[in-house]
Design a protein around this nucleic acid. Structure first.
Length: 562
RNA sequence: UGGGGCGUCGUCAAGCGGUAAGACACAGGCCUUUGACGCCUGCAUUCGUAGGUUCGAAUCCUACCGCCCCAGCCA
């Protein structure tokens, strides 16, 4: 409690700094944030960054974070997404308590505010078609022109807006617009649309409404209604902040949340937009939103990522305003660290090569006791059967080994993890010269894996008893795209960079029998291979299908590639 | 050519006028019954560029260069 606390002061990011200042200056006495997803798709790792930020910042300051669905566009939104999003946020470890909200809950209030705006002469009904409106809007360098409907009287606007609400006009025929400034350099201020006519059944309000408020109008007011103190969003909304402020200032809402923008997360070898992820799902490049190759929260969960590892990742990458692309290796490092500490070890042979131990009695079997974790005795031990026939990994034998290869080869001795020292005596091949089987002999005095004479054996192999093995399917995953930034060239479809080998299904894997009872909440390290977990969808009782979460660091592989 | 934002190691990212944190990656070494883990060492005389202010600048000023976002009745 003395010096340690001062040795590594973690510096605050710019948002936490602003919030700390607002608290110390007395501008705010509490912190209220919100995570505002639109229920039109699944959450991905980029959303996790926002979730960790909003919930994190609130809890660090004893404040509150609301989960609010931004459901103002019924043509794209579905109840199923609402449920999936709630599941994902909760799984990540965050609790919104009673603070579950929907923008659609505010439709009535929002409508009243719009009426108020009209009465103030700050909003008008515009009959321009979408094409005409685009023309009137001007361009990036030329100012827009006032709509011919801009100067309708408040009375006329009120009547028209009521008629819009009553369903007297066709979809798209009229909109309600804010009256701001058609010559603003900021295009968002050129009389933005506040309400459009849209006949679509809303997942919560059904067919009650045929007019729906736009994001810019809804979001700031929802924040104000909920007394949000800090409204955190991504950079592309910075241009919208003047409109956010205009609506709240014009309506003189009792509170005026502060919008602060930060850079969204990008990762190497993947895409992050919901639109693109949806495309991968719809065009069946992946099996669904929760395909383990997808960087969605549900995909990561199915892949074997833990909530803690994702939280650690979000902490690690920091928060700033510059655009960046984080190396996928950082994410992998986070899950490896977590699972290295917490995943029990097991043995599994993915590509089996049969080994016959010729001097081991044919009818003999024994049970070896193996620690579940090399450094954490609290994780206990398990029993693994051993017999005359075992499987080892095909990669662990080479007839003509290169320098530094310290696995099995003719005449070489290796250790079978926690079992015995064995020497390769004979290579059995089929008529085509393919290696079929190895004949080895074991040293009975080396039970447990070390010889009484103290001789050094460099190589240690994992193995599975052939007689007892659980045959199972294991799915190996590689990055979904084969270049760091699949979106680098706007003229090239990002899907052309899809990695054709991102999924490899191995159906003849041999696992230690203990694994038969594994469930999808389990995580294992298959020794010398990586981390794996049972697939939550395709595993059957007693017959799990395993997903590959992440490999172990492999320095031998690095050596080989040089 | 309008408006907004951003440029610090290969990738993220601290730094806020007093002489470049940390993480990942990478390279070497130690340890090892997982070529894992762990441990040790190295890795920006320099902060987009050029000037200026100052005893002192990544931090202040000026100019320039580069990148991203905005012309949905999407969010």
């Amino acid at each position: 409690m003395t010096t340690q606390e001062h040795t590594n002061p973690k510096s605050k990011d710019f948002i936490r700094t602003i919030i700390a200042n607002d608290l110390s200056s007395g501008k705010h006495s509490t912190v209220t944030t919100r995570f505002p997803p639109e229920p039109n798709g699944f959450l991905h790792i980029g959303h996790a960054k926002s979730i960790c930020l909003n919930f994190g910042v609130a809890s660090e300051n004893n404040g509150t974070c609301h989960l609010r669905f931004d459901d103002t566009n019924p043509s794209k939104e579905e109840e199923a997404y609402v449920e999936a999003i709630k599941t994902d946020v909760a799984w990540l470890g965050f609790n919104w308590g009673d603070n579950l909200f929907f923008a659609s809950n505010y439709f009535e209030k929002l409508y009243s505010y719009a009426v108020e705006l009209i009465k103030m002469g700050k909003a008008y009904v515009c009959d321009l078609s979408p094409d005409e409106m685009r023309t009137y809007r001007g361009t990036l360098t030329e100012p827009g022109k006032d709509s011919p409907y801009r100067n309708r009287s408040a009375e006329e606007n009120l009547t028209l807006f009521e008629q819009m609400k009553a369903g007297e006009f066709a979809d798209g025929s009229r909109v309600l617009r804010a009256k701001i400034d058609m010559s603003s350099g900021n295009i968002n201020m050129r009389d933005p649309v506040l309400y459009r006519i849209l006949r679509a059944t809303h997942h919560r309000t059904g067919d009650t409404w045929c007019i729906y408020p736009m994001y810019d109008y809804t979001h700031c007011l929802s924040d104000a209604i909920e007394a949000i103190t800090h409204s955190l969003c991504t950079l592309e909304f910075a241009d919208h902040r003047p409109l956010y402020d205009w609506v709240l200032d014009t309506l003189k809402t009792p509170c005026h949340p502060q919008q602060i923008e930060f850079a969204r997360l990008n990762l190497t070898y993947t895409v992050m937009s919901k639109r693109k992820l949806l495309q991968l799902v719809n065009e069946e490049y992946v099996s669904g939103w929760d395909d383990p190759r997808m960087l969605t929260i549900s995909g990561l969960r199915r892949r074997g990522y833990t909530p803690a590892s994702i939280r650690t990742f979000c902490d690690t990458i920091g928060l700033a305003k510059r655009e960046s692309r984080v190396d996928m290796a950082v994410l992998e490092n986070c899950i490896r660290n977590d699972l290295n500490d917490n995943a029990p070890r097991a043995m599994a042979v993915l590509k089996p090569l049969k080994v016959l131990i010729t001097n081991y009695p044919e009818d003999q079997e024994e049970e070896l006791v193996i620690a579940n974790h090399p450094k954490n005795p609290e994780m206990g031990s398990r029993t693994v059967p051993f017999c005359r026939e075992i499987y080892i990994e095909q990669d662990d034998f080479l007839e003509d080994p290169p320098k530094k290869f310290f696995r099995l080869a003719p005449g070489r001795e290796v250790r079978l993890r926690a079992a015995y020292l064995v020497t390769c005596d004979e290579v059995i091949k089929d008529e085509n010269g393919n290696i079929k089987e190895l004949h080895c002999s074991y040293d009975p005095a080396s039970r447990g894996g070390s010889a009484p004479d103290g001789r050094k054996v460099k190589g240690t192999l994992h193995w599975v008893s052939a007689r007892h093995a659980l045959q199972a399917e294991v799915r190996l995953y590689d990055r979904l795209f084969n270049i760091e930034n699949p979106e680098i060239d706007k003229d090239v479809d990002f899907k052309t960079h899809l990695n054709p080998n991102s999924l490899e299904v191995l159906s003849e894997c041999m696992l230690e029998p203990n694994l038969s009872t594994a469930t999808s909440s389990d995580h294992f390290q298959f020794e010398r291979l990586g981390y794996f977990c049972p697939d939550s969808k395709d595993s059957l009782p007693g017959k799990p299908v395993f997903n590959h979460t992440v490999t172990l660091r492999d320095t031998w592989d690095k050596v080989l590639k040089k």
